[in-house]
Design a binder for these strands. Structure first.
Lengths: 203, 203, 203, 203
DNA sequence: GATGAATGAGACTTCATTCAT
DNA sequence: AATGAATGAAGTCTCATTCAT
């Protein structure tokens, strides 16, 4: 009856991962001890090691999960055939996500992961594969330029990076100050992109 | 002769801070041990404690210094009386800074600090006082809107946050991939802001 | 039907003991975990505790079994009435045992037990009762000296210890280097004892 | 002034090694904790790590030192030019060593190392390089046979192994029972070898 | 009888910090 | 002022053993 075992296993991993995110959110990746995670999960010291090889493995799993949403949003956007609609929809959904109070807390962990990725190759992989099937996005934008959906002269890669920066920068700002005005930012950011996409040519 | 003593003291602090930045750049804030910093600085284990209270104090000092450049850039911008020229000049100088190879390495430390600020109140202060005399900037933008320098209907705080996001997001992206095309980004980011500032009204 | 139960019980103990010996052989007494033994035996983690009180109990049982052969060889030798023939036969059979490839592997466990016996009183008992009904052997040799079968002046206890040393020392050497020349050693060791038993008197 | 530092370093290593041997003697290699070693040495938990990389490194160092005496005895024996005198002298000195009460205790550690060597390659190296520049000894014996100092027909390698077995076997027996009669053993063992070396030919 | 998830004591090790010299 | 050996609290992880199912 592997069904039961698998379900149990998944439930436990979920439990541990949730506990880890809660702890990481509060005290960061390094200040958080395995004991804290275990206590938060309501387990004993050794229990987590049946489900993860090490604290680092937990961090990696958390990181991967934390970037899964962005990856899925991006995948959906890339799947559409109307570039402007896709981009708009991607942004709308991203801003909905930014507005979710639970996610706001959990998203702090993403920032920890962003920093950790700077010297941890496995996390670097997670992060760059997260918001950064850049290549695909860039190709899609190029196609949109060729098809006339986006203005001629639009430089695809920088454009994609500008979109991402608008999002990532706001994630940072929101983490530093959770009371930041999301709606205002959303409006201005979208207007910014609209303005850019309306411009006939750019420098 | 406190002069000599002070000079000596400053030189030592400089030496320690430079060593710390070099180490932090390579291995992050936590993986770096005081022994590594000391070795990099060519000092003995106990030496740093004559100049800093603790490793955390070193991190804070590094953080403060790492954000001083941004603060100064911003201060200059706020001092000007032509809003558009000030913004343009601020951005130009910021992009020059982004292009400096030495700074590119050192800027990785900023990202470490950004993350650490999430649960370290002292660093939070450093970070938000860094790029974020937001209030002053917002007030300046409001004045520019009122004076007609910036388009009417421009929402000041979101606008400032968009500008910062464009910069901070790129800092992240450049840290993750140092080969990123800075020039392309600069052109597109500037065009983006130009487009926004040219628009009569926004949504 | 206790018969069935007992048979089952014995089969399981056998299974566990065999698995333990295989694991001990490979990684020693301490590096071997109960999980490894259980896996090797194809049982579940908790199963062994129905048949043994603890890992230590398994080690003791293994140790006892590992020394049973020597004890039986010795018992046979002590049962004979021709001292020289008994000794010769004991040695011959011991060397046959030394030549058995399976036993060569398993005998490594004996060495682990020899060491462990140094601070584990129960194992000390097993070891010294193993090759070491020294007293009986010594008495038998004394009788042989009195009867004229062994040379007068032969010091019984040291003689027995020399015989044992010749065997134990070789066990060690064979464990360290399994390719050692058994036949050559057998010939020389037997010649050594022959020479000693032929000598009229000793120093 | 590296002299002082080196001396200090050596003294500390000595202190730690002595403490380790005392602990290993009492409770074996594995039952001994680093805390025990540290307490025995009168140091703090972290202190040993300035002098050794790990507990394993301490074990290796102890092992190497524990076999140094045998190696030196053997080296002396191999340096002589009268084979019989060299062998006799080697054995005499070995038996003196066996009689030293302090060494008797410490020699228990050798036995622990012998066992550990069975699955620890580094210790295997220490052990086999210890009593076992077998090759050199074998060559020396061969030369002695050729020169007529030893009986013709004496099989060199087995002979060397017999000598070693006589010693190693006794080390074991003495560890198991410290009250064993050393003098009796010495006399019988030497007589045994004399008898062997007097024999005209062997099987 | 069997299972295997869970327990939790305790092992080894690291590292920021102190302090005698 | 500087040194660097020493400290010791605390962290991660292992593993023999238990017990509900």
């Amino acid at each position: 009856m592997p069904k039961v075992t698998d379900e149990h296993r998944d439930r436990r991993r979920r439990q541990i991962l949730d506990a880890a995110v809660a702890c990481f959110d509060r005290r960061g990746l390094h200040a958080t001890t395995t004991d804290e995670i275990v206590a938060e999960a309501g387990l004993s010291a050794g229990a987590i090691y049946r489900y993860f090889d090490s604290k680092d493995a937990i961090i990696e799993a958390v990181a991967a999960e934390r970037h899964a949403h962005e990856r899925s949003l991006l995948a959906d956007a890339l799947a559409g055939d109307d570039p402007r609609a896709s981009l708009r929809s991607f942004l709308e959904r991203y801003f909905v996500w930014l507005g979710d109070p639970d996610e706001q807390r959990r998203r702090r962990v993403n920032v920890y992961v962003w920093a950790e990725a700077l010297h941890n190759p496995r996390l670097a992989g997670v992060v760059t594969s997260g918001l950064a099937p850049l290549d695909q996005s860039v190709r899609a934008v190029r196609a949109a330029v060729r098809s006339g959906a986006f203005p001629p002269g639009l430089d695809a890669e920088p454009f994609v990076r500008v979109v991402l920066a608008l999002l990532q920068g706001f994630v940072l700002q929101q983490c530093w100050d959770p009371t930041v005005d999301l709606e205002g930012y959303r409006a201005t950011a979208l207007a910014t992109l609209d303005a850019l996409l309306s411009a006939t040519t750019e420098a």
